[in-house]
Amino acid sequence: MTAAPALALRDITCRFPSVDGQGTYTAVADTTLVIEAGEFVSVVGPTGCGKSTLLNVAAGLLAPSSGTVEVFGEPMAFAGEVNRRAGYMFQTDALMPWRNAIGNVTAGLEFRGVGRAEAMERGQEWLRRVGLSGFGDRYPHHLSGGMRKRLALAQTLILDPDILLMDEPFSALDVQTRQLMENELLALWAADRKSVLFITHDLEEAIALSDRVVALSAGPGTRPIGNFVIDLPRPRDVAEIRMEPGFLAFHKEIWNVMKEEVLKAYARQRAA
């Protein structure tokens, strides 16, 4: 394929002022990550290794200390401009608590100047698609964790972004709700094949969902240490695929690479 990749992070390094106030902490070092158009890529790595940092760079929310980002071939400027082609589902709750469900879903349309009547119609349609019709006038605090995640998904997808950035979106959910949401995500993705960059610390989730899994080393100076093409057949059911021999083989292979890094991250956290 000669078309420009959806997202290309090249030689990204991110440094932060270190906690003690002197010197710097290198969270991510010389990382290159390319997501082709229509590809579903998961990034796995131990907690605190710099996954969210990478995603913020891809979203244009955080300027890297060095390195470049290209979105469908266009270099990103990072001058107060975010990645316009991307939708972002955050790790923590990002809904506006003072807006009800329909108000949250239609926020993006409102910001983009879509008329109120049309926004409401499309908002109701998306609430229906994520199974929340009838909940339009509820406020986020009245919704369960799973419902809030579905609402956040609708809020992002209503803008029909070409790239979907997801930061451990389901990690706070119980196993059943989580598998339901994963299957819903796969169904939505299959419908129009957006490019997805999916962050998780759960290896099984990564394999079940993705075309490709990128494993990151433990911090500091996190970088990719493995790239695995997951050629399991689609459509997949995330609950059933976990039992298949192909899945288990991938799991074993990737875990072998990651094990050491997870232990390193764990030892570092214990020491801190």
């Binding site: 923590t92 990002a94 003072w98």
Partner: peptide, 29 residues
């Protein structure tokens, strides 16, 4: 919340919209 702000920016809010849709309602509360 920085996350709510970042979310609004990703949803396409400009500076003026951040003020009216995020800062003002939050301050009103």
């Amino acid at each position: 919340s920085p996350t709510i702000l970042a979310n609004a920016r990703m949803l396409g809010a400009n500076r003026r919209q951040l003020l009216s849709a995020i800062y003002l309602p939050s301050a009103m509360s």
